[in-house]
Design a protein around this nucleic acid. Structure first.
Lengths: 258, 258
DNA sequence: CTAATAGTGTCTGTGAGACATTATTGA
DNA sequence: TCAATAATGTCTCACAGACACTATTAG
């Protein structure tokens, strides 16, 4: 174990890349209040024209983590640089990659994070569809582009990770306000996992009235116990709900929790 | 982006630690063939007495990944060094950690892997309960020890990861022979996730006869279509099954697949 | 025979899925 | 009134959970 005598340090720390996701909603043109269209987007940045590697290509934002910060702090720093949002959004580590040749400049692993950011924190980015350096793309668009390095694959892996989390945890809350309608929750899930399809009436009942899921979300009530509602998306007000913090652990082997 | 002008390379690559799990089974002393007791174990190694950091402490095995190999290859190499098992076992990346102070020697991140190894590949280790450098400990024992660095926390995180995978994927197969009985599968799940408790009769029926899980495992049959059985654990032979490769995707929001 | 485990049968209440129906609001 | 969405109701079949029961083997 003579390696322990050496000094361990890279000049720039460990590279950290971050896939920043948001769900953009478009109101449908209609004279009535109607459901919004929601679509998952990801933030990409354009590499400078005089970059040594992949100049002018779009890529996931990234940077280097220093020796005086955690990896998550480096990811947050990168997030803040690109979007100006602060630590109140949730980030998740996805994976770490290295294989020979993934960066033409040499030994360059990458710790990949993802962030789930509410649309309202990205209003300037969402509006600026012609931005030159940082821009939101729909997942469909992003996956069709030729991205720098192996970022296409990283994006795919990250997407799969987010989809899995969407179905097995309550991260849907990251894309929703504190109080939300059943329909909003339903739309958020579908925006991330399009193959999730269920009759919304049954979705609601299963969520509220079955033993294993009861308590996952609960009705929002005001100070006097009266139900709180929203008419954001319909003329008829809809009941608002909130996540309770309870998160069931599910299994492929039976239908219970463990 | 002037950092792109520099040379990126650490002298020793990225540290990789690996938690190697196995399930040890003990036959119950009885004049009849009876169920074995199965318990999850983890391999720890003892750091040399003249290590610079944590001399003489037990730790997760680890090493450095080079620039000419993938991270997984480095993990496999480490696995082979400690157990002499080859690439046929499955490894999974768990997480990557770094925070200031996690290693007294300086900047030292770690990519944590876990490996799921069948007991029969570790017979020498399992037998040698007084080994000085590498030894299997039950999870209970390992979590009560004061391990080197932050390996206690890494072990806990890894354990949680494995438990989650045990319930949401078919990695139980890594701890089982190609053909196994329902009871063996049941015991493997319980060895990893003790809180999983279900009437074994119902377990079997739910696994074989419900729409969302049908096809997960299927009956093992011989050349002539006759059912293959085993009397490893009972006088009465039990039907053997095998995983089919199908893996349902489950959700906390309903009981279907997506 | 007994001891052990494998496997089957049955009954009940709950839940999933399909679908129809009613309710509530703004314009 | 209409258009949209919210919310409720109903019916059937699947299935989870509890538990008793039978079957098969070695010794």
């Amino acid at each position: 174990m003579d390696i322990e005598k050496k000094v361990y340090r890279t000049p720039d720390g460990l590279p950290v890349d971050i896939a920043i996701f948001t769900i953009l909603s478009r109101e449908q043109p209609s004279s009535y209040r109607t459901l919004a269209h929601r679509e998952l987007n990801v933030l990409l940045v354009k590499r400078s024209r005089d970059s040594e590697a992949f100049p002018g290509y779009w890529a996931l934002p990234g940077g280097f983590s220093g020796e005086n910060e955690t990896l998550a702090e480096a990811a947050y720093r990168e997030l803040k640089e690109e979007t100006n949002v602060d630590n109140f959004v949730r980030i998740e580590q996805v994976k770490t990659v290295y294989y020979p040749g993934r960066d033409p400049r040499g030994w360059m692993p990458s710790v990949v994070y993802c962030a789930l950011v509410q649309e309202r924190h990205l209003l300037n980015l969402a509006a600026d569809t012609d931005a030159e350096e940082a821009k939101l793309f729909t997942i469909g668009e992003a996956l069709e582009m030729t991205l720098a390095f192996d970022h296409h694959e990283l994006l795919q892996d990250t997407l799969e990770h987010v989809r899995h989390m969407m179905m097995s945890t309550t991260i849907a809350s990251e894309f929703l306000p504190e109080e939300f309608t059943i329909r909003e929750l339903y739309q958020v899930i579908q925006a991330v996992v399009p193959s999730f399809e269920e009759d919304i009436a049954n979705f609601k009942r299963n969520l509220l009235a079955t033993k294993t899921r009861k308590g996952l979300i609960c009705e929002s009530v005001g100070a006097n116990g009266e139900p709180r509602t929203s008419d954001r998306h319909s003329n008829r007000p809809a009941q608002l709900y909130r996540f309770s913090g309870y998160e069931p652990s599910i299994s492929i082997y039976n239908s219970g929790i463990f």
